[in-house]
Nucleic acid binder design. Structure first.
Lengths: 188, 188
DNA sequence: GTCTATATAGTGATAGAC
DNA sequence: GTCTATCACTATATAGAC
């Protein structure tokens, strides 16, 4: 199999993808055990409790998304930035029916401890503030339709993205995700 | 306790609220057994399998929401209709941290059989088409900002509502739900 | 219709050998 | 670090008495 990636990283990787598919209550150490090829007791060695594992999964996932956002060139027009953002959601969706890990954990939040809730909140806030800057830029450039303050519009837009990946997977089509992007782009 | 409601109805009621809180994989026959005050075997008498229970729960929940939509007077202005729609989401949120059952099941969809998926899809479509009519009306009345075709804008808006209840519960505030409503209302 | 009792399998987690 | 073995518990589900 994979001889370059550490067992710890493989566990985290499969934990992330499993949760993006079935959520916190929908995967087990046993599932990961099968996927990685080690016993469940070995997983407990790296992550004593399931919550330890999930918290670290959120941190790793968040770092990855933040890195991806930084690769979107600051100098691009706002509507281009938004298209790239939309594609980030679309890729994992069409590849393997996965939705954003933190969107999924937001649904499972009542089963989760406070430290994980805080990590998910931080992820939401980071995305909302990135979108707020893009919306402000797009309003100035005349390419994005922003109603009200960019901060409020960004929270509504981010909610729309999270909801639309749910719907897109439900209907097995990216159409609803694209509807969201279209809903803020100025038509000429 | 409740002497007027049948055991079957109590089971369904608690199944619905449990799932709105923790999702499909986050509640058990045992939980319901405690809540209703009957043994798990009695629940199996009414609903042989968990999927039987969940499917019926979706049907009951959907009927309730459809009835609520019908109580919103056809002759009202579009922005008033939208406010009432927003309040439907807000009520269950602030009362007991519950999100829309079908939004929750959309997150759990990869754990569910096809017949439940179809029921959830039907619920989404019904809401989207109701919102499309409201948006079309609001565009004509000049009170709602609709970008593109009402059908597409409605899908984006419904996604925003579903995503915003997730975020609202995550942050324990209705603010994000209200951001969505504000994002489509025309500011004067 | 509700119960007791039970079947079968899965859960997160730990002790201790190697 | 990974394993075997095991714990205590929970899951959905069924058989059969009352």
């Amino acid at each position: 199999m994979d001889t370059t990636t550490s067992v710890r990283d493989q566990i985290l990787d499969h934990a992330i993808t499993s949760m993006m598919l079935r959520g916190y209550n929908g995967f087990s150490y046993r599932d990961l055990s099968t996927l990685v090829g080690v016993k469940t007791s070995s997983i407990h060695y790296y992550f004593p409790s399931k919550d330890d594992l999930v918290l670290e999964a959120v941190n790793v996932y968040s770092s990855g998304v933040m890195d991806a956002l930084r690769t979107i060139d600051e100098s691009l027009p706002a509507d281009t930035k938004l298209s790239k953002y939309t594609m980030m959601f679309g890729k994992i969706l069409s590849d393997c029916s996965q939705i954003c890990l933190c969107g999924m954990l937001a649904a499972d939040i009542e089963s989760l401890p406070d430290n994980i809730r805080h990590a998910v909140q931080a992820f939401f806030r980071a995305n909302e503030s990135w979108l707020a800057k893009v919306l402000a830029q797009g309003a100035k450039e005349g390419t994005l339709a922003v109603n009200g303050k960019p901060e409020n519009a960004a929270r509504a837009l981010y909610a729309a993205f999270q909801g639309s990946v749910l719907a897109s997977r439900l209907f097995s089509t990216k159409a609803r995700l694209e509807d969201v992007e279209a809903s803020v782009k100025v038509t000429r």
